[in-house]
């Protein structure tokens, strides 16, 4: 028998157990990603992809207004959505955590995120029912005589933002609520004991303590929002394209994979910059 130590044998077994997941991630995530990154440096000529290294796609992105505007639209919409969602969700989470009696809180929360369980595509579609020219809102407003002509909400940035905010308010309510109820009531008691009024307690104690939860939720909102194709495509239409829509356009009729790849890399860089900006508040840990 060779004198392999128990620790050596353990290490070999451990590699064996981790290997399938690691290989899967390497083969179907890392390799495709690297391949895509490489492809962003090639170009399309006719229907052929020419494997010549060049920066044309990136140069084109910064010189062609339509492309650059896509990134600007994406960033604007994402920032508006993130800010609005946090502003709407925080009071809701706070009311559920503080005002709703303890035994109804879980139910209130489940109720608040129930529409989560509609299919993602259907959720945007159902906003179309509400916002379209002959939709619920317009018919109600014209019905009571508030407006004469139906409002153009569908196929605008407003519709996209409403659809996104609807989704992320639910998500953020969940993360902020779980943050709020973890706070010991003694913080509030201590602050009150030391003479702080309700607003001061919130501003100096509660808000700073819940900031990590807000930032985690906001980052998640940012990542999911900036990379989404469905909501802007259904609700925003083709008037004002965001980056994912432009990427899908490259794939569709133009079949310009290198350009789509380059745009994806740019999208990823935007997410990475957002991550670096909130990194110190984000934590993924083993309990």
């Amino acid at each position: 028998m060779t004198a392999t130590t128990l620790e050596d044998a353990d290490r070999r077994k451990a590699w064996g157990f981790a290997a399938p997941a690691l290989l899967w991630t390497l083969a179907f995530f890392v390799v495709p990603f690297l391949f895509m990154a490489a492809m962003s440096l090639w170009k399309r000529e006719g229907r052929e992809i020419v494997r010549v290294w060049n920066l044309d796609n990136y140069v084109r992105f910064f010189s062609e207004n339509a492309l650059l505007q896509g990134l600007v639209n994406s960033l604007e919409i994402t920032v508006i959505v993130t800010v609005l969602s946090v502003l709407l969700a925080y009071p809701l989470a706070w009311i559920i955590a503080e005002r709703v009696p303890k035994r109804f809180q879980r139910m209130a929360l489940i109720l608040a995120i129930l529409p989560f369980w509609t299919s993602y595509v259907v959720r945007s579609y159902s906003w179309l029912l509400v916002l379209s020219k002959n939709g619920v809102i317009n018919q109600m407003l014209t019905g009571v005589g508030l407006i004469a002509e139906p409002l153009e909400i569908a196929s605008t940035r407003t519709a996209t933002v409403i659809g996104f905010v609807h989704f992320f308010v639910m998500l953020l309510t969940l993360t902020i609520y779980s943050n709020l109820i973890q706070l010991s009531p003694n913080y509030r008691r201590a602050a009150a004991d030391l003479g702080a009024n309700a607003f001061q307690t919130f501003w100096h104690v509660i808000l700073p303590l819940t900031l990590p939860g807000i930032m985690t939720g906001a980052f998640l909102t940012f990542v999911l929002c900036i990379g989404d194709y469905v909501t802007p495509q259904i609700l925003g239409g083709n008037n004002e394209l965001v980056l994912p829509q432009i990427i899908m356009l490259q794939l569709g009729r133009r079949a310009d994979f290198p350009m789509a790849a380059a745009l994806s890399i740019i999208l990823m860089l935007a997410v990475t910059i957002a991550y670096v900006a909130c990194a110190r508040w984000l934590k993924i840990e083993r309990a």
Binding site: A18, A21, L22, T25, L26, F28, F29, V30, V31, P32, F33, F35, M36, M39, V223, L224, I226, G227, D228, Y229, P244, I247, M248, L251, F257, A260, A261, S264, L267, M268, V271, Y275, I284
Partner: peptide, 23 residues
């Protein structure tokens, strides 16, 4: 290894799909 396994969580589905599709 933990970082590698978690990494796809931080990337948009669109990009994951596009990478796989290209390959």
């Amino acid at each position: 290894q933990r970082g590698l396994l978690i990494a796809p969580m931080t990337v948009s589905y669109l990009i994951i799909a596009l990478g796989l599709l290209s390959l």
